[in-house]
Amino acid sequence: MSVIEITDLKKQYAGNYVLKGINLQVEPGMILGYIGPNGAGKSTTIKIITGIIDEFEGDVKVLGMDVRNESLEVKRRIGYIPELAALYDVLTPVEYLKFTGKLYGLSDEVFAAKGWELLKLFDLADKAEARMNTYSKGMKQKVLLISGLMHNPEIIFLDEPLSGLDANAVILVKEMLQQLKQSGKTIFYSSHIMDVVEKISDRIILIDKGQIIADGTIDTLRQQAQQGSLESIFKSLTATDSVTTNTAKEIIDVLNS
């Protein structure tokens, strides 16, 4: 049984379709890399699946439930880690985690047991009582990771989860995602950085201009493109090398003039 089932998903903003018919089935216990250039519709897809946007065409089912009718139950069983450090930064991490924990219905005991332990493991314990507006982007990202995972969700949606993290934390998160996968969770990983997606994903979906343009493991994608890294596959599927090189050259010309 697939945990996410998307049938003919379309979404328009003011007459322009940003998603033009997405069809997707995701099996449990895998890491799905969802990649595409900026503005391809990645975040919009995630926002629809997680129930943030509820106006769309087509059908989306998560864990067998329709996201339109049973959004509350769906939201309870998934975790969403947004991009751009969207959190209340005048709060301290402890207060923020307590807040999100309560919204997920976690009791104070669960929070006391898990929250502090996780803050310690993410190396934030000594700054746990400081307001987050003094935090770096990476530290905020860690708090978001904890808040999205603390209620032990079955499906985890990550939108650019590694942005701003230092090298150690990147390795930590990558290893964590692998172990979460092994314990049977499904991970939906959205990014425009090829490097990490290529290494951890079991299946990669390439999306551009609101449409899926490639779907498969990194090996099948490689065969399709006859090229080495995912970045060049990505390039060959979205734009040609010469076009990008020319654009870069023009930018430098303008800067030098």
């Binding site: 943030i52 509350l72 969403y80 969207a86 209340y88 219905g105």
Partner: peptide, 13 residues
């Protein structure tokens, strides 16, 4: 508008 990013993904009616 930060509410839509923070509270809407949570199970809150």
């Amino acid at each position: 508008t930060s509410d839509s990013q923070i509270i809407l993904p949570k199970p809150v009616t």
